[in-house]
Design a protein around this nucleic acid. Structure first.
Lengths: 146, 146
DNA sequence: CTCAATTGTAATTTATAAAATTACAACTTG
DNA sequence: CAAGTTGTAATTTTATAAATTACAATTGAG
């Protein structure tokens, strides 16, 4: 498998923004430090989230803020904006089945139905978890000043 | 995030074996032709399926046959034997979150619950589709001699 | 208005993982 | 034993993800 960490990165970004944006200017540089990633990747992900209306990003002066209520942001909406390809190709298909073999001709069509069902199950589960849920979990047992 | 093509390959292999093994000796060479893959990959996948008790493979003389009833073989059992890593790491995690950031310290733990839920949904859906289902679909509208 | 800090984005490089290929010992059966 | 095959390790090739470099455009402070 090819692990694509964009989704985890995006959720990390949204959590740090939700937690710290009121007190700190959340620049790509700062967020990159927190995630252990690099600023360009952060800017690209923030760019996608901005286009989807999930965050605001201040050009020039810098800093990202949430544009939606955490209850309105689901793992699905985040993943499908930052990495749509992974979700549509969740299950990889081998690329060159023989068209001379009756099974080879049909294999992609045969797999379509179960693979779609898997995709729908993933979507439904992702839609069931919001940023608010993650934040609630985050604040569990933390003193309120953090 | 994306599951590699081993799972699709394995399902293709099982279908051609189910359909043709009574009349033909299903060698890795022959199956490789049908799948558009290469014989070594086929042998490796058949090796995993054999260890899981799903197929029999004749050493020396060659040829693979189903060992279980197609009703007993699910997409889950196939995927989890040929590519367990993809299923446990379905959602990739970014590897180096800062331990100095309170979010960075917690992010992997925070994502664990929703990511497990996604994995369970995938498993449940995969368990709901058997090789028999795929074969039924395959034979839909085909004359009985194929 | 200028300057420092920052974003947006393209281009390039590096790292990593998947898949194909090569090679060969071990097995099976005629 | 000879031909055909499997099992498996090692290597090479290819594809993709992620990091890096570079720089124009933007913003707000001074």
């Amino acid at each position: 498998m090819r692990i694509n960490t964009k989704c985890s990165l995006a959720l990390h970004i949204l959590i740090v923004v939700a937690v710290f944006a009121k007190k700190n200017k959340m620049t790509s540089e700062l967020i990159a430090k927190s995630t252990g990633s690099n600023p360009v990747m952060i800017r690209n992900i923030l760019g996608s989230l901005r286009q989807a209306g999930i965050v605001d990003v201040q050009r020039g002066s810098g800093g990202a803020t949430l544009k939606l209520d955490p209850k309105e942001i689901t793992i699905w909406s985040v993943c499908s904006t930052v990495d749509p390809a992974s979700l549509t190709n969740l299950m990889g298909l081998h690329p060159n089945p023989s068209q001379r073999c009756p099974v080879g001709r049909k294999i992609h069509a045969l797999l379509k139905e179960p693979y779609c069902a898997i995709g729908k199950a993933v979507r439904k589960t992702m839609e069931g978890c919001t940023l608010a849920d993650l934040l609630e979990q985050y604040y569990q047992g933390l003193p309120p000043e953090l």
